[in-house]
């Protein structure tokens, strides 16, 4: 006679042995790509096998994230206003803010001005300083021209997906950017790496055997297709060869080199 307890035991034993035999688990990025239908059939089947063996992950992936949710008071998924305030204070502390209270407002009223607006302004000022500093080697007139250009619509730009060095096939030529475009939308792709808390990109001028960092920025946003977007005026890339270096930064601030991309620009 086969009973529930037999099923429970057989299920556990099957999970234990199949999990051991499974091999390397898919990364979080691959799991998310699967939910968006972006994987080839063979890889999708492997993810399905993995999810069948890890039902708690399957549950988290299948559970809808409600855009609007009203829980009943007393239900486990209900948060009181006090708890929301408490969590807001904890979040501020983790972000290093001064701990101002979240506005006690209904859904229709506007929130109080952000607690860290001053930080935001400071960041914006620093950003501007870095941008201007990078361009200061050129004339003030050139800066003004570029600033003006940044405010105008773009009509002539080239979008280019950048595959990492070592991932472009046996011949591995540098990535060549067309001379004709005024601007580039560069999309460095990050293949097969887990998520990091933050990312950093350095642009290094490597023309003529030199190595000079011309741009260095943290806070890059990894997009759902595992690329980053970098809007680049052609004028910024005045040398013939550049190397882009991408780093992942974990919660403790430790950096891991993830990929690099060699770019070549034909002389104008």
């Amino acid at each position: 006679m086969i009973r529930k307890s037999d099923w429970a035991a057989a299920y556990q034993e099957h999970l234990a042995s199949a999990r051991q035999a499974f091999g390397d688990p898919p990364t979080t990025a691959v799991l998310v790509a699967y939910t968006q239908g972006q994987l080839p059939a063979e890889e999708a089947l492997r993810v399905q096998e993995y999810l069948a063996l890890h039902p708690e992950l399957a549950r988290a992936l299948a559970e809808p994230v409600p855009e609007s949710y009203q829980a009943e008071p007393g239900a486990p998924d209900f948060l009181s206003r006090g708890e929301i305030q408490q969590d807001w204070a904890a979040l501020q502390a983790r972000l290093g803010g001064p701990g101002e209270q979240l506005a006690d407002a209904g859904p229709s009223s506007r929130p109080r001005r952000a607690w860290h607006a001053r930080n935001g302004l400071a960041r914006a000022a620093a950003l501007l300083a870095v941008l201007l500093g990078g361009l200061y080697v050129q004339s003030q007139r050139e800066v003004s021209r570029l600033a003006q250009e940044l405010r105008e619509p773009r009509a002539n730009f080239e979008q280019r997906l950048l595959l990492p060095d070592g991932g472009r096939g046996a011949a591995e030529p540098p990535i060549s950017l067309p001379a004709a475009a005024d601007h580039f939308l560069l999309k460095p792709a990050l293949l097969g790496h887990p998520d990091f808390a933050d990312y950093r990109l350095k642009i290094i001028d490597t023309s003529g055997g030199k190595s000079r960092v011309v741009w260095d920025r943290k806070g890059l946003r990894r997009l759902s297709d595992d690329t980053f977007e970098l809007w680049m005026p052609r004028d910024f890339l005045s040398s013939e060869e550049y190397r882009l270096e991408l780093y992942g930064i974990d919660e403790r601030g430790a950096e891991t080199p993830l990929a690099h991309y060699t770019l070549r620009l034909p002389p104008e």
Binding site: P66, P76, D87, P111, A117
Partner: peptide, 22 residues
């Protein structure tokens, strides 16, 4: 960058995100 958007995001969706995890 003003951070008003973040306060707004928190007020609108914090309960929903919490409910998702529960």
């Amino acid at each position: 960058m003003s951070d008003d958007w973040f306060v707004d995001l928190y007020q609108r969706y914090y309960s929903s995100i919490f409910a998702y995890f529960v």
